[in-house]
């Protein structure tokens, strides 16, 4: 599973890092961290950043009275502070068989698994692990606690959240696994992860989301119920997005589906309509819980799409604070 001697730099191309550098990963919701950080905490009073004035009520400590306001207005106001903390991030990568689909040649410097190198194709799993690594690196560089899990019908490998210096290497080892011959069950994986999670956490789920939308909805509902934030990164191959094939041939499913005789020229429009409907359904489900969804084209670079997503989240959080 782990690749001996794998270099962490393999997972981060300079191009991706350059595109991500201006952004900070911020939790849209208030993070429940245990260390000082840059994310908003629900606990107030013990930090240095002023938040607001509140009228004094009996029982309040007089240490927080604003005497200057009392001197000017003869009224008692208590100063409130906002404590900032770090963010807990758990990245879940879909390691099911459908993620082993890819039509692009290997991207140099983007890492990838042994299977990728053998087949010479850049798969959705490769794209997902590259994106996960980029996010993890970003979090670690912000001193956020980050953990990684690879799952299919259940968790196949996981690294607990941590912000230590050795965490990056552990994450890379975990991401070096390969897809398995099983279908992705978001509910099962999320259940397992929630059992290990006590603080509020940002869950980043990287998958093609081609499975049953109902299973995904139930997993997202569970996250929402526990007060966690989530981002859904849909990894889809360019050919899946466009069906730019002019063939009449049998199509074989990667997850054991029966073969299907298809003339792509005749069904292209219907397929694209179905794809649109499916992605819109996923998007609706996620937004119903206040979560973000972003579609990734595996033929395109990770950086710009990820940067756009983070920029959007930063804008939402920043705007809310101001």
């Amino acid at each position: 599973m782990a690749t001996p001697g794998l270099r962490a730099e393999q997972y981060l191309s300079p191009e991706t890092l350059a595109q991500l550098a201006p952004f900070e990963l911020r939790a849209k919701m208030v993070a429940d961290g245990v260390m000082n950080g840059m994310h908003q905490s629900p606990l107030q009073g013990m930090a240095v950043e002023f938040a607001a004035h509140r009228q004094y009520t009996a029982g309040d400590s007089i240490r927080h009275l604003d005497w200057k306001v009392f001197g000017r207005s003869d009224k008692l106001y208590v100063k409130e502070y906002r404590q900032e903390t770090n963010l807990d991030v758990m990245i879940l990568v879909d390691g099911s068989a459908s993620m082993s689909f890819g039509t692009l040649g290997v991207k140099q410097g983007w890492g990838g698994t042994d299977a990728t190198r053998r087949r010479g194709a850049w798969t959705k799993f490769d794209h997902a692990t590259a994106s996960a690594a980029a996010l993890a690196f970003l979090c670690l560089s912000q001193r956020d606690r980050v953990g990684v899990a690879v799952g299919a019908d259940g968790l196949r490998g996981a690294v607990r959240k941590s912000a230590t210096r050795d965490q990056w290497r552990s994450i890379v080892r975990c991401l070096s696994s390969e897809p398995v011959e099983a279908r992705f069950s978001p509910a099962a994986c999320i259940n397992q992860l929630l059992a290990q999670t006590s603080h509020r956490t940002l869950f980043v789920i990287l998958s093609d989301f081609l499975g049953d939308p109902e299973g995904l909805r139930s997993a997202l509902a569970r996250l929402r119920h526990r007060g966690h934030d989530a981002m859904l990164l849909a990894m889809l191959d360019h050919r899946e997005l466009t069906l730019d094939l002019d063939v009449e041939a049998p199509f074989i499913g990667l997850e054991g589906e029966d073969a299907l005789d298809v003339d792509t020229r005749t069904i292209r429009k219907a397929y694209l309509d179905e794809l649109q409907r499916h992605l819109q359904l996923i998007d609706r489900q996620a937004r119903a819980f206040g979560y973000d969804v972003q579609v990734f084209d595996t033929h395109e670079s990770v950086g710009p799409v990820l940067a756009a997503l983070l920029s959007r989240r930063e804008g939402m959080v920043g705007g809310g604070r101001r």
């Binding site: 689909f101 093609d208 191959d237 094939l245 063939v247 009449e248 041939a249 074989i252 179905e274």
Partner: peptide, 28 residues
């Protein structure tokens, strides 16, 4: 000849494909 010559193609989004085929293949 063209029908028999094509090699099978591996595909991930089989469910979408199946639904699309059901819609258009028969008429086509």
């Amino acid at each position: 000849f063209l029908r028999r010559r094509q090699k099978p193609i591996e595909w991930a989004a089989m469910e979408l494909l199946r639904r699309a085929v059901q819609q258009s293949q028969r008429a086509r």
